[in-house]
């Protein structure tokens, strides 16, 4: 494998990582502040993608669609928080898992009821189609590059939001001591709704941008959800920094595993067997990574608290 190809694959891994970060940061925020484990987070991803595809189809503009998708995901998140989720904060993880599992069923089938069974059309906007040549001669799709840039911007934005703003201060306070911040007179239920809607908006953003590259269909959120959970568990639940590092780690390991393992097995196996075995091992790789990390660091790499 040439160096440029390797660089390109690492970029691909980072791009997958940024998308996972968008999902994982919302999950980890909600867990950190409210102590809630939300399996239905993938549904906001799906909501973002479907609304973006729908609005783009109506208006003809991807950017209007993107805005619509993110706002819709945030709105759906706020409504779900207000009707269902806030009843779960004082329950144990078991109730949270079951209730949000039920929400997945409701969202998936409800979306199918509204939009039908067929996948929807959504494509990369013209201004971001095609590919660019990076320094060093690596040719890379412009849209994917834009996703990486956006991910970096969101990471910085989240950092500033949490460390520099009043809302961020409350979020940090909420992570450290839930009772205390209520006692200080902060409107805790509004804060919770805001944090939950923010998480949903980030998931919606991920769904909207990735929807242009993938198939906008019912159930699209579930594989991503599982990966996002792997990310936050590796990174340490509740830690945004952990989510960022975990996301990039998972993205790069997954991508390079898929590329390198079959080649490795071809050294001592027949080519078609090697592709099969290599692909099989590659699909298990991140779970092996996660189990390995948890075996030695039971609270993840950057545990905020438990």
């Amino acid at each position: 494998m040439t160096l440029t190809l390797l660089i390109e694959q690492v970029l691909n891994g980072i791009q997958l990582g940024t998308m996972l970060f968008l999902m994982a940061s919302g999950l980890t925020l909600v867990f950190g502040v409210m102590g809630l484990i939300n399996l239905a987070h993938g549904s906001f991803y799906m909501t973002g993608a479907f609304v973006t595809a729908w609005v783009t189809g109506l208006t003809g503009s991807f950017w209007v669609g993107l805005l619509g998708g993110v706002l819709a995901a945030a709105a759906v998140g706020a409504v779900v928080e207000w009707t269902v989720i806030r009843r779960l904060y004082h329950r144990d993880h078991l109730d949270q898992v079951l209730a949000t599992f039920a929400l997945i069923l409701i969202f998936s089938e409800g979306t199918r009821w509204i939009f039908g069974s067929s996948p929807l059309w959504l494509n990369v906007p013209d201004s971001l189609s095609g590919s660019v040549t990076l320094p060093g001669g690596v040719e890379y799709p412009l849209y994917r590059l834009a996703i990486i840039v956006m991910g970096v911007a969101i990471a910085i934005g989240l950092y500033l939001l949490i460390s520099r703003t009043r809302l961020g201060m409350r979020i940090r306070a909420g992570e450290n001591d839930r009772e205390m911040i209520g006692a200080l007179g902060v409107d805790i239920s509004t804060l919770y709704t805001l944090v939950f809607a923010l998480g949903a908006a980030l998931a919606g953003l991920a769904g909207s941008t990735i929807g242009a590259l993938q198939s906008v269909q019912v159930g699209m959120g579930e594989p991503v959800l599982i990966l996002a959970f792997v990310v936050i568990v590796i990174g340490g639940i509740g830690s945004i920094k952990g989510a960022l590092i975990g996301a990039v780690l998972v993205g790069v390991v997954d991508t390079l595993g898929r590329v390198l393992l079959p080649g490795l097995f071809k050294l001592f196996m027949a080519p078609s067997d090697a592709s099969g075995v290599g692909a099989a091992l590659a699909s298990m790789l991140i779970y092996v990574l996660m189990a390995g990390i948890l075996a030695f660091k039971p609270n993840g790499l950057f545990a905020a608290h438990d």
Binding site: H93, I226, F229, V230, V233, M290, A291, P298, D306
Partner: peptide
């Protein structure tokens, strides 16, 4: 592990 980590590692 314990708590959410246990849920997730068994899932993994």
């Amino acid at each position: 592990t314990s708590g959410v980590y246990f849920i997730m590692i068994t899932l993994a």
